[in-house]
Design a protein around this nucleic acid. Sequence first.
DNA 1: AAGTCGTGGGT
DNA 2: TACCCAAGACT
Length: 332
Amino acid sequence: MPWRVPPADRQAGVLPDPYAVWMSEVMLQQTTVAAVRDYHRKFMALWPDVSALAAADDADVMAAWAGLGYYARARNLLKCARAVVADHGGIFPDTYDKLLTLPGIGPYTAAAVAAIAFDRSETVVDGNVERVMARLYDVHAPLPGAKPQLTDLAAALTPPERPGDYAQAVMDLGATICTPRNPACGICPWRGPCAARDAGTAAALPKKTPKKKTPTRFGIAYVARRADGAWLLEKRPEKGLLGGMLGWPGSDWSDAPAPNPPLDADWTSLPAEARHTFTHFHLRLKIEVAFVPQDAAAQRGQFVPAGDFRPAALPTAMRKVYDLATSALQGD
DNA sequence: AAGTCGTGGGT
DNA sequence: TACCCAAGACT
């Protein structure tokens, strides 16, 4: 990870930029390192420090975050940067308790920033640590109920020396050796004390309460293109699914969506539909397309000139609609 | 305090 | 295909 300071340098007293650490930890929430790497690089280039980010336009930040998911993180990223500038003189607070008060920073991220950026002895508890503790102590109680117990075990094990290295090491252990499937117990530095390895239960831990299957919702998306090439788009409400992101005007998403075109036009249904899976439901979007005259008046949304429109600024579900619509409009 | 909130990769 | 999973936070 390019934002990480190697252990040798850390032992020599070099600590990473708290802003870069905070940025990485927010991006890494429920997100893989592989997916984060390019976004972290892009954000650090666009906004090199917290003051620059605090001064950024909301729309630019949301567009830059497009594709990474969990868009509340981007909204809170901006809120947090502005709070650091307004309430902390542009300097990141260096304690768990103060970090915890900031938007988008919860127990994990507060502990991670305090430990990694400030070498404070705080206990990070992410999915990796939960798994490592469940195995090390052979805990069979299922998550998420077992989280408090696993947190206590992790806290009791946290050493006072090199807190930042330790925090990252436990997570690295979970990410590379104590993996969800096929844990590499044979090369694990903790194979000696590991109770689950001794009991032969490592691969079956941690247990999790079963989740119900994801339902399917349906909807209609309207892609209108004006004579000058402009696209009719709409900024979604700040709260809720894809909050604050750009999208196509559409129907509700439900079992039986009600048609809701943003303007009167000669709509044509596309044969293909956009399919996308969110965390808790599948979505199947029918697509209606129309060419409209230059003086068309939209009841919802606003026309974005072709030169200003970047499909990469759309969340993935909306980009899938765009891809299908353009291939149809251009006849390939 | 259970539900909500994305996406891409692995199996 | 259909699930699982990822350095969680917010309501």
